[in-house]
Amino acid sequence: MNNRAHSLFPVIVLTLLAGVSIWLDRATQQSPTVKTDKTRHEADFTADQITLRRFDLTGKTQYVLVADSMVHYGDDESTELIKPRLDYLNRPEPVRVESEFATVSKDGETVVLTKQVLLHRAPHDGKPESTLRTDQMTVWPDTEKMRADKPVTLTEGRTIITADRMESDNIAGEVRLQGQVRGTLYRNSPTPKP
């Protein structure tokens, strides 16, 4: 009986060795990472001359976004727009926001506009046309809030106000400018001289 055990011994050792080597092989082997685009900021689709319409709960057009072209990135689902123009329509006075570039976050919640950002509000009920210019501005389209951490120039008719930063809430109808505020306010004569 004894020698059988003896003859078994090398078999046991061999299976042990084989087991260890398989385990070692599996442990050290890099799991083959497929080059998914998740790790690289790569476009997964682009579009040209786009028009995007957003409807509010009542089905009315809340805003229309037009752009020369757009690039969509798979990894963070963000979108880059070239020459975007955003028109807010269902308001007493139309408001337009445009710039050279814009990046739109995944669910379109945050839009960062860069280079020659211009916000234009048409004249309405006695108030003259107003514009706001800056180099970079973040817009939250759904809550119609905006913020610029760069110098801004606000005009209302001939009145001009410059400042270092800006925050605005279109719904509350408030624009707050901060830092080195300089304003030249003219009498905007609502009744145009004949």
Binding site: L154, G173, E174, L177, Q178, V181, R182, G183, Y186, R187
Partner: peptide
Amino acid sequence: PVNIEADRVTVDD
């Protein structure tokens, strides 16, 4: 025209 300098301004539409 009125010239104004300040730290902050709120334009209340």
